[in-house]
Design a protein around this nucleic acid. Structure first.
Lengths: 172, 172
DNA sequence: TGTAATTGATTAGGCATCTAAGAATTTACA
DNA sequence: TGTAAATTCTTAGATGCCTAATCAATTACA
């Protein structure tokens, strides 16, 4: 058995760690590990089509609606502009998108899918569906719903705390 | 209001995105956003003590038990060796840990906390507790328990699928 | 209407993480 | 017991994400 993370050998360690001792402040750690598992699973599949995980995020938005500015894309993706910028630069080189300036603004850059970028949808979306299905196997819809609710609460709580902290003198 | 992610302006966008349309395959996205929120919150606090988020992961393990090898630390942390290696290199420079070779092996490198590294515990642990408390405010213990269970199931399901896929000819 | 503030794109640089591959050491076993 | 395999650490190089700072264009308003 190899040493790679993700091999069943190391997964044993990973899982044992979680089952044995899950002290109260490690929910964060659990969430992070779940993120890693999900990203890893998707990444493996995307790689077969020469798409990186970062590109997937933007493709998904653009399949819904293209012609957005880079700024708008950043917001939709929940990422900072430089991240968006560099992902789009690569995606443009790969021929998945085009950047265009439109007459009414010399500042904004609008992003459009190429045919190639659009065509990826039918290849890649099934992977996401498959992974989601695997991930929540043997979990009831009610449990998934609760998890969604709790995760959303966490995101909201932290966001609220952060904007409040910005006003305070950062004591905690 | 600035453009920074994390400002209340952008958080509005973030939250609206989640409340409006949460199609069935976006649990992964939600988990990822929660990870980001939690990391961001912790990172801000750690920075005040010149500790990066990556170091925090290892410090937590070492506070429990030091004298582990780098390999063992990697396993505990759920990270690959090169990640561990570079984090430890920095932590050694900062004076939080020491690497020692012990007589019975010329290969293994054992990692020990310095007094300074050990002393960080009482400064940093309260931050983690505070953040956890904020994060799950207005969430019932039962809901947290369900979320834990679901996240653990996701981790297990993906790990199992991955080791099975390693055997197959990678079709899905 | 001219200047200041804001916005959007970009550049520069850093951290955390990974995979792949190499080197040194230890272990297994023919 | 000598060679092959496995293990551990390390190096190299890539991706994804961030913050800070710069530049150009646009908008606001005194």
């Amino acid at each position: 058995m190899s040493n790679r993370q993700g091999s069943s050998g190391d997964n044993q360690v990973l899982l044992r760690r979680w089952r044995d001792a899950v002290p109260n402040d490690r929910l964060a750690h659990l969430i992070k590990d779940a993120t890693r598992g999900l990203s890893r699973a998707m990444q493996t599949r995307l790689a077969r089509y020469n798409v990186s995980f970062g590109h997937w995020v933007f493709l998904r938005i653009l399949w819904e609606k293209d012609g957005l500015t880079q700024r708008e894309l950043s917001e939709e993706a929940g990422l900072m502009e430089p991240t968006t910028f560099s992902a789009l630069t690569t995606m443009e080189k790969l021929g998945y998108i085009e950047r265009r300036k439109l007459p009414h603004s010399r500042k904004n850059v609008y992003v459009f899918l190429t045919n190639e970028g659009r065509a990826l949808k039918e290849k890649l979306v099934p992977f996401a569906e498959y992974i989601n299905q695997i991930a929540v196997a043997n979990v009831t819809p009610a449990e998934v719903a609760t998890t969604r609710k709790v995760l959303l609460a966490i995101i909201e709580n932290l966001a609220r705390e952060e904007s409040e902290a910005a006003g305070r003198s950062e004591e905690v």
